[in-house]
Simulated scan of single mutants.
Amino acid sequence: MTTAEDTVFAYWDACEARDWERFAGLLADDIVYHLPQTRERIRGRDAFLRFNREYPGDWHISVTRVVGDGRRAASWVTCAVDGEHVPAVSFFDLDDDGRVSVVTEFWPEPYEPPPGREHLAERYPAGAVV
């Protein structure tokens, strides 16, 4: 039996490999992809595949962590594109057949910390994996 973690690792592996046939096999027909920061929603396997196929740039995904329980999982990945490393956090729901049915994804923008806590925190280089 495949776990939610296994499915999410396979999802990112197929995505990185641009193996869109294998990627499609991991998705429910009625998948819903949510991007809360831009208030976008993509419905259906075909639209979601096209969204990923047509995403611009020479991007690459590396997985930092995947955790799951039952039919839910979350991942932390880093997307490298044009020399920039951007983290993403994704939440996955799987259907009864173990296919990805809902993805909610956050692509946080880095920002400078507010002044006054330098004595409490250390800074690490941008793009470093923690």
Rank of each mutant, 00 (worst) to 15 (best):
V66H: 04
Y111M: 11
E122V: 15
S101E: 09
P125R: 10
V129L: 14
S101I: 06
E122C: 05
Y124N: 02
F92S: 04
A47V: 05
D93C: 03
F92D: 03
N52Y: 04
T104I: 11
P115M: 07
W59N: 04
R50H: 09
A88V: 03
S75G: 13
A121Y: 12
R50K: 13
F92V: 01
R71D: 15
W76V: 09
V102S: 04
V81F: 01
E109V: 14
G70N: 05
T78V: 15
A47C: 02
G57K: 07
P108M: 06
V102M: 06
V86W: 10
F51C: 00
S101K: 11
A128N: 01
R72Y: 08
A80K: 08
V81W: 01
V89Y: 08
V81P: 00
A126G: 06
S90V: 01
G98I: 09
L49W: 09
E109Y: 03
P110F: 04
L120V: 11
R99E: 08
P87M: 07
A47D: 11
G57D: 07
L94Q: 01
T64G: 07
T104G: 00
A47N: 12
H119M: 07
P114E: 14
D96F: 02
F51H: 10
E109Q: 15
D69S: 15
A121F: 15
G127R: 08
E109I: 07
W59T: 05
R72A: 06
D97K: 08
V100M: 04
E112M: 02
P110H: 13
